[in-house]
């Protein structure tokens, strides 16, 4: 049976959506990342301008389940481009989908803030190359706004 993406209209369908952004490693790597592969699209590399999106396929959605946190997201497949804007700095980066993730349901309700500016739920993971364009890697997690690029 094919699972539908969400019972509600995707939050990102008509405009930007706000959520949390983190970073992840993929491709050839050192340390704990060395066991990581090239991602669901087979192209993911930490040094490339790429990201993971929770709804790249039915199988992906079944793992990430942002709908369990009350968030519907559009189906976007490998290579689709999103713009991620850090709410802390206003700096943005455009990246292409290379993997399925983050696992939104495991962090349901989590909130990140910059002062009074906050965003809920993990909606996107960037590669280190991409994340470091909008924030220091040492921040680990930031509130952001995501739109189609």
């Amino acid at each position: 049976m094919s699972r539908s993406t969400s019972p509600d209209p995707p939050a990102d369908l008509l405009g930007p959506v706000q959520g949390e952004v983190s970073w992840f490693c993929c491709g050839t790597a050192w340390g704990p990342c060395s066991s990581t592969g090239k991602g669901a699209c087979g192209t993911c590399n930490s040094g490339s301008m790429q990201h993971a999106w929770p709804n790249t396929s039915d199988a992906c959605w079944a793992i990430t389940r942002p709908d369990s946190c009350g968030v519907g997201l559009s189906r976007r497949t490998c290579g689709f481009r999103h713009r991620t804007t850090a709410l802390c700095s206003g700096v943005s980066v455009v990246t292409a989908i290379a993997d399925c993730g983050p696992q939104t349901d495991l962090f349901c309700g989590e909130r990140s803030c910059c002062g009074a500016t906050c965003a809920d739920n993990r909606l996107i993971d960037l590669t280190p190359a991409a994340y470091s364009q909008i924030a220091s890697l040492s921040t680990g997690l930031r509130p952001c706004e995501i739109s189609a690029a």
Binding site: T43, N45, G47, S48, M49, Q50, G79, R81, V94, T95, A96, A98, P128, A129, A130, S132, Q133, A149
Partner: peptide, 9 residues
């Protein structure tokens, strides 16, 4: 270019 390696990284 999105999807490609960042030469500054």
């Amino acid at each position: 270019e999105p999807g490609t390696p960042d030469p500054n990284f």
